[in-house]
Amino acid sequence: MSNRRIALIPGDGVGPEIFAQVVKIIEALNRKWNLEIDAKIYPYSAENYLRTRITISDSFLDEIRKNFDAVFVGPFGDPRVPDNRHGREIIGRIREKLDLNLTIYPIKLYADWLCPISGLQDKNINLIIVKENMEYSESLISSLTNQGRSSELAIETKVFTYSGTERFFREALTISKNFGRNRVCLVDKSNVFPSSRLLFQRVLDSVIKEFPELSVNYLTADLALYELLQKPSKFDVIISTGLSGDEMFQIATFLIGGHGLSYSCEVGLDRQILYRVMQNSSPRIAGHDSVNPLGAILALSRLLKQLHLPQESKIVENAVQDLVMQKAVTLDLNGILTTQETGFRIVDFINAS
């Protein structure tokens, strides 16, 4: 049995087309270097949910905890499930089972022409955004009273704990160090939520002492977004929570060419990782062979590094960069390659390496 096992969940819409390229590349890597990477596909999707009324099974969650190095998940979203219940439960239960408390967004511009801001002088974009998943995203106390009356009142309260904040910062700084980064910026909405900033700053000032090689500074989300658009090379690691992290990711992704070139990885204490493509499921173009698979292929490159295959990881990343430099890309980037052609071009690069 292979000692490198990946669970693949292609998801909805264009997901299966994207993951067909991932499988194609894994098979090419296995042939080229006898790697024996075992990539097993699971059917969890809107189609499966509508047929079985099961979002994700307990047995699968137990299996990935015990037997897999990583889970790689595609996009979710299907008009037949308007509330996207299946997608939220699949991601939420995997996070809970693997205790995935933070998300990493690697952001890198692979060619200047991809950046849509033609006047941007600073195009040295290579940073990571680290966002907390569990406490900050889910600890929301809300209430709605007197509905339908003039006295109707809605209250939303976020809860932050010292222990949860300390765990997040310690893991985020460890990841920064492991990525070879040394400049950390905490981004929050302290101009709106001053109490949380006092907690964040006190905890981070304490935890940073364990990482003397790292430096840290603080910015409000509004100022950080402005500076990211003006001088992105200023940022090495951005640590943030909830909506602030999402906002930073959206702007950073815009700068590097869009969601088709982006991915995320979610990490827990056991170091099992959930990889996700960040595209929409786009059911209207499903089956048209036009979706961009490069973000998923870059996620595979990062996954190979996790599996202690640095040479193979670099070759896959170089293959993506080679295509981008040639402007051999899909329709979303004003190119003419199909999804399948993109996968074959990556395989050709691997075979020639």
Rank of each mutant, 00 (worst) to 15 (best):
residue 340 Q to G: 15
residue 267 V to Y: 07
residue 306 Q to K: 14
residue 151 S to H: 02
residue 169 F to T: 01
residue 93 R to F: 08
residue 161 T to Q: 01
residue 68 F to W: 10
residue 39 A to K: 10
residue 74 G to I: 07
residue 115 C to D: 06
residue 284 R to Q: 15
residue 290 S to Q: 15
residue 40 K to I: 14
residue 254 F to T: 12
residue 326 Q to C: 13
residue 18 I to L: 01
residue 276 R to V: 06
residue 265 C to P: 13
residue 225 L to D: 09
residue 260 G to K: 00
residue 55 T to W: 06
residue 4 R to D: 07
residue 176 S to N: 06
residue 27 E to N: 12
residue 142 S to W: 09
residue 322 D to R: 07
residue 98 L to A: 03
residue 339 T to P: 03
residue 143 S to R: 12
residue 98 L to F: 05
residue 342 T to F: 07
residue 328 A to V: 11
residue 78 D to C: 09
residue 343 G to H: 08
residue 172 A to M: 02
residue 39 A to I: 03
residue 300 L to T: 05
residue 18 I to P: 05
residue 71 V to D: 08
residue 133 N to G: 03
residue 270 D to P: 11
residue 125 I to E: 04
residue 73 V to W: 05
residue 135 E to R: 06
residue 214 L to A: 01
residue 19 F to D: 10
residue 11 G to Y: 00
residue 286 A to Y: 02
residue 271 R to K: 14
residue 51 R to M: 14
residue 98 L to P: 03
residue 87 G to C: 05
residue 160 F to G: 00
residue 204 L to F: 01
residue 248 M to N: 01
residue 258 G to C: 04
residue 289 D to P: 03
residue 219 L to A: 02
residue 29 L to D: 01
residue 79 P to F: 09
residue 29 L to M: 04
residue 58 D to V: 14
residue 324 V to I: 12
residue 240 S to E: 07
residue 240 S to L: 00
